[in-house]
């Protein structure tokens, strides 16, 4: 394999051709924040939190998608990089409910983000109000409050909820539902600009859409916008107690594929099923049975109850 020499923060390194700057930075132990990147998904480089300074480039470049070239000189912690990362995190934190996004919050703290400087967060939109926005039209505000995507969650099935007030539009769920994993295409990005949102066709409820409830979107969501209903219910009741939870890895009991399940258990009940992306069998992807069909272990109760 051909190796490509480059320099990151003054340190020389050689990485295989086709690697990204992010790969090289991680190789050197440089901790680079990412939100829309995942090892199992095609980079979309939309969150811009991983940007780095590349000598000779007019703008910063997304390290997650930019492939290494011989002789590149990269800075990962320059003033320009820090400012852009900070502002990106401020823009997200001021417009999105990050209460279940600990990673994003940690990044925001690391870069000294002060989202409050855009003003108090505007009141939430009504249910489905943002879904009715027309491309190219918006109502201008008086600037007193920072506009946000806050809105009531969509609850239209017993298995998982969609809380788009927590959505940073990172495209991960769309990719997981589409060609990167499931090939179901139940959701896509609709609308445009600040009104861009994840949606089924015409915002129909999930049971009327192509959704097959594989939950692979939940597995990749970085902010808790997509969540097991069992988890959301416990959180609503103030009874989601991470300190009292255990995580158990096991193999799905259904078919012969042998997907790895990661069960979150609280009070001797399975409250969430994830799958680790680093396991090569299905890279974090499950089907509806593995994801949601495990409650039989609790006895004769309907799914999700």
């Amino acid at each position: 394999m051909k190796l490509v020499p480059l320099e990151i923060d003054g340190q020389a390194i050689e990485v295989p051709e086709g690697s990204t700057i992010l790969d090289a930075a991680r190789e050197l132990g440089v901790d680079t924040p990412t939100l829309c990147w995942a090892s199992t998904l095609t980079p979309v480089n939309v969150c811009r939190v991983c940007v780095v300074e590349l000598e000779g480039a007019r703008t910063l470049v997304p390290s997650c998608a930019r492939q290494v070239e011989p002789g590149m000189k990269v800075l990962t912690d320059s003033e320009r990089v820090r400012t852009s990362r900070k502002v990106v995190l401020e823009l997200l934190s001021s417009s999105v409910d990050t209460s279940t996004a600990p990673t994003l919050r940690a990044f925001a703290a690391r870069y000294g983000a002060t989202p409050g400087r855009f003003g108090p967060v505007a009141p939430p939109a009504g249910l489905n109000e943002r879904d009715a926005a027309r491309a190219g039209h918006h109502h201008s505000s008086d600037g007193a409050c920072a506009e946000s995507v806050h809105q009531p969650r969509k609850v239209d099935n017993q298995l998982y909820i969609r809380d788009y007030g927590k959505c940073i539009t990172c495209y991960k769920c769309v990719e997981a539902c589409g060609t990167d994993a499931q090939n179901t295409f139940a959701i896509a990005v609709a609308g445009r600009g600040f009104e861009a949102r994840i949606s089924t066709e015409y915002n129909v409820p999930l049971p009327d859409s192509a959704c097959v409830y594989c939950g692979n979107c939940i597995n990749v969501c970085p902010t808790g916008a997509l969540m097991f209903k069992s988890e959301a219910d416990l959180r609503d009741a103030g009874n989601w107690r991470e300190a009292d939870q255990t995580t158990t890895r096991t193999i799905c009991p259904y078919c012969g594929v042998g997907c790895t399940l990661e069960l979150t258990v609280q009070d001797n009940r399975i409250v969430r099923v994830m799958s680790p992306p680093e396991v090569s069998v299905t890279q974090g992807n499950l089907c509806v049975k593995g994801r949601f069909g495990v409650t039989y272990v609790h006895g004769n109760e309907p799914a999700g109850e």
């Binding site: 811009r48 852009s84 502002v87 823009l91 506009e147 539009t169 445009r192 600009g193 600040f194």
Partner: peptide, 20 residues
């Protein structure tokens, strides 16, 4: 703000903050 495609954060939210 109207014409941003909405894909990347600096433009999607930044154009809103600029208008505000």
């Amino acid at each position: 703000r109207d014409e941003s495609c909405g894909q990347c954060v600096p433009c999607r939210v930044g154009t809103v903050r600029q208008e505000e």
